[in-house]
C-alpha cells in the first residue's frame, strides 16, 4: 500500500525541479527588440509568373484587333485563370479605353471596377492601375492594366466611363495617385487633411496618428468638481 502513493510523490519532484529552470533562463528573450513600427513593412517577394496559371492570349479576335490598332502600346496580353488581362502604356491608356468603349466588337460599356496595386520593389513601375471592364452586350470581361512610377499622375477615365468618378477618388484617397482631368479629385473615405495614403505598402497597419487625433477628436479628460459631490454627500448625512 505505501508503495503506491510513494511513486507519484517521487515522480512529482522531477517536473517541479525542471520547471523552475526554464523561467530562470527565459528573462533574456523578452527583451528582444520590439517590432519596428511601420518602417519594416512585409517585404514582398519578387513577382514571378507561374507557368500553369498565366498564358499568353493567342487567336482571340478582339485582342488581336486591339494589338493591331495600338501596336507597341499594348505591352502584354495574357490570361490568368481564364481571365484576360491587357497591359497598356500609360500614355495611350485613354485612347485604348476609348477604343474599347466605342468599338462595336469590344463595347465595354461598363467600368465594373477601378483600383490600384502598390509594388514598391518594382523600379519605376511602383503602381499598377487595374481596371475591370464589362461589356453588357457581349457579356464579356476584360482587365486593363497600366503601370506608373511613384509620384506620377495618371490620366482620368471619367471622360470614358462616368462611373470611374468615385473609384478614382478612392484610388487617390488610398494611394495618392493624381488622376489628371478628374472633375472633382478629393479624398472620399478619409478626412480631407488625413496624412498619408493607407493602402500603400509602407503605410503601417498598427498605427495611430496622435497629432491628427488630438486636433480633431477632443479627448479631454472631464474634470469633475469633487468638492461639490462631497458637499452634497455631507448634506445628506
Amino acid at each position: 500500500m505505501p508503495a503506491v502513493p510513494a511513486a507519484p510523490s517521487e515522480a512529482a519532484p522531477t517536473p517541479t525541479d525542471k520547471a523552475p529552470s526554464p523561467p530562470a533562463a527565459k528573462p533574456t528573450p523578452p527583451k528582444a527588440p520590439p517590432p519596428a513600427h511601420g518602417a519594416a513593412a512585409k517585404p514582398a517577394p519578387p513577382p514571378k509568373k507561374g507557368p500553369t496559371v498565366t498564358v499568353e492570349i493567342t487567336g482571340d479576335s478582339l485582342i488581336d484587333k486591339v494589338r493591331q490598332q495600338f501596336g507597341a502600346a499594348i505591352t502584354e496580353a495574357v490570361a490568368t485563370l481564364g481571365q484576360q488581362i491587357v497591359r497598356v502604356n500609360k500614355q495611350s491608356l485613354v485612347e485604348v479605353c476609348r477604343f474599347l468603349h466605342d468599338d462595336p466588337d469590344a463595347a465595354f460599356d461598363m467600368c465594373a471596377d477601378l483600383t490600384l496595386v502598390h509594388w514598391p520593389d518594382r523600379k519605376d513601375q511602383e503602381l499598377d492601375l487595374v481596371i475591370n471592364l464589362y461589356s453588357v452586350s457581349h457579356n464579356r470581361r476584360l482587365r486593363v492594366k497600366a503601370s506608373m512610377a511613384d509620384g506620377d499622375s495618371c490620366p482620368s477615365l471619367t471622360g470614358v466611363w462616368a462611373g470611374a468618378d468615385w473609384m478614382e477618388r478612392e484610388a487617390y484617397d488610398m494611394f495618392g495617385v493624381k488622376f489628371e482631368g478628374h472633375p472633382d479629385l478629393r479624398r472620399i473615405l478619409l478626412p480631407e487633411d488625413w496624412p498619408g495614403f493607407p493602402l500603400r505598402k509602407e503605410y503601417p497597419i498598427e498605427y495611430r496618428d496622435n497629432e491628427w487625433t488630438d486636433k480633431h477628436l477632443d479627448y479631454r479628460e472631464v474634470d469633475y468638481d469633487t468638492s461639490l459631490i462631497d458637499v452634497k454627500y455631507s448634506e445628506r448625512r
Partner: peptide
Amino acid sequence: PPVAEVYHSIEAPKGEIGVYLVSDGTQK
C-alpha cells in the same frame, strides 16, 4: 494560392459585389 490574381463577382442583393485578389504565393 499560386502567384496569380483573380477578379470574381456575384449578384448580391444590392448589385455586383466583387473581389479582386492578388496573391504573391504566401498565406496572405
